[in-house]
Amino acid sequence: MRRALIAALFFAVLVAAWQAMAWSGRWSPVLLPSPGSVAEYLLAALADGSLLEATGVTLRRLLVGYAMGVAIGLPLGLLSSTWEVVEDTVGVLALGLQTLPSVCWIPLALLWFGQSEGAMLFVVVMGTTWSVMIATDTGARSIPTVYARAARTMGSAGFHRWTRVILPASLPFLVSGMKQGWAFAWRSLMAAEIYVTILSGFGLGQLLHYGRELNAMEQVVAVMLVIVLIGLLADKVLFAPWERFLHRRWGTDARGA
């Protein structure tokens, strides 16, 4: 309760400072839209459905791309942690590609897939896969060997060993890897949506982009707010339960953080 109060107070002060700056009149409303005008836009965009539609389009792209990235990155990470051949080939490739900002994929994606959902998805998958793979690889390598030995003596081998020992044992690293992958997916998608107009759907990034084109800064700021809120919400809904589980079971949140 006290923590919630402090948080509420913090954000109230933040908004008040923003409002004060807007009222001071030192900056034109085009450069610094007031909280009121942003709220007004948000309400209007909610009412006419454009905001919800854009959010829906963006979230669908994000979830599909993220799921694909995890589905590819996780097994690859497990493979590269055990097989030197994979480590020396795909592992090196992943390390390199992870450092490549996913915006760089956009020109190629457009050439290969045209102005389509495929191009969007490609950029998101490229942004997600490698970081998930590297986190999984690191996680699987950090498992104390005594777990694997104990499991072996009890008769755990093959698929059972992977699903009942290696995966759960590397869970603290997996969760942080998945979280990092989520952040990368989100960034990639926003970059793609801002740079590319896709006729099959109008996402949050495009809404932000057109706000800029129309000099409607309250729209830009409002969309940024929505993006931040979705990020926060994803953290609470998707990852917080896992982190609580890790905290409870492992007795530490240093590794799950």
Binding site: V146, A150, T153, M154, S156, P168, A169, R249
Partner: peptide, 26 residues
């Protein structure tokens, strides 16, 4: 390794992702 010869290790090699019962059930 075989089920007829089980090992109890130096530091407890209990699995932290399972509770006490889960470990014995493994």
């Amino acid at each position: 390794p075989e089920r007829h010869r089980l090992v109890m290790f130096q530091e407890s090699a209990l699995f932290p992702w399972l509770d006490a019962l889960g470990n014995v059930l493994f």
